[in-house]
């Protein structure tokens, strides 16, 4: 019986140790992900840290600067940042696209991105894609949005 107890205790310690490493490594390896407004309001906390920011591309803001450089405005819940990105652009990347960029905030309103994912509009998705979360006061956005989402009837 005693050996069983010893095995049990050793097993428990091992399991506990593993659990500890799993959790701490997850905490270390995880990247903060937030919407544009949160990134702006909490930027002091994440200064110099790599983060992921999610938002929608402001229609008309995409400026292509050469083969693999692009800048655009990303907006969510009324806040906007300028994103500077170098790398291949997914072709679902367009006005209104729901985009997640990975990188660092270089100043209050500008973000240097090293990676970009644009969600593709999917028929599996019940939510209408596009600029559903755009700020109401942007007239141009509203126009562009309705065009990019054609309805048959």
């Amino acid at each position: 019986m005693e050996t069983r107890n010893i095995i049990f205790v050793v097993g428990l310690l091992l399991a506990g140790g593993l659990l500890f490493f799993v959790i701490t490594s997850a905490v270390d390896d995880s990247v903060y992900m937030m919407t544009v407004d949160k990134a702006v309001s909490e930027q002091a906390e994440h200064a110099g840290q790599e983060i992921k920011v999610q938002g929608n591309v402001v229609p008309g803001s995409i400026i292509v600067k050469g083969d693999d450089k692009v800048s655009f405005e990303l907006t969510k819940n009324g806040e906007t940042v300028d994103v500077f990105y170098t790398g291949p652009r997914p072709d679902t990347f367009k006005d209104c696209a729901d985009v997640i960029v990975t990188g660092k905030l270089s100043s209050e309103r500008s973000f240097d991105a090293v990676d970009m994912i644009a969600k593709c509009p999917s028929k599996y998705d019940d939510l209408p894609g596009g600029c559903d979360s755009r700020p109401v006061d942007e007239g141009t956005a509203a126009n562009a949005g309705s065009e990019s989402n054609p309805k048959k009837y």
Binding site: S25, A26, D29, S30, V31, M33, K52
Partner: peptide, 14 residues
């Protein structure tokens, strides 16, 4: 109360 994402490197590591 913070959102974070855990990428493939962590999964691969384990």
């Amino acid at each position: 109360n913070e959102t974070a994402s855990l990428g493939p490197p962590w999964f691969n590591k384990w």
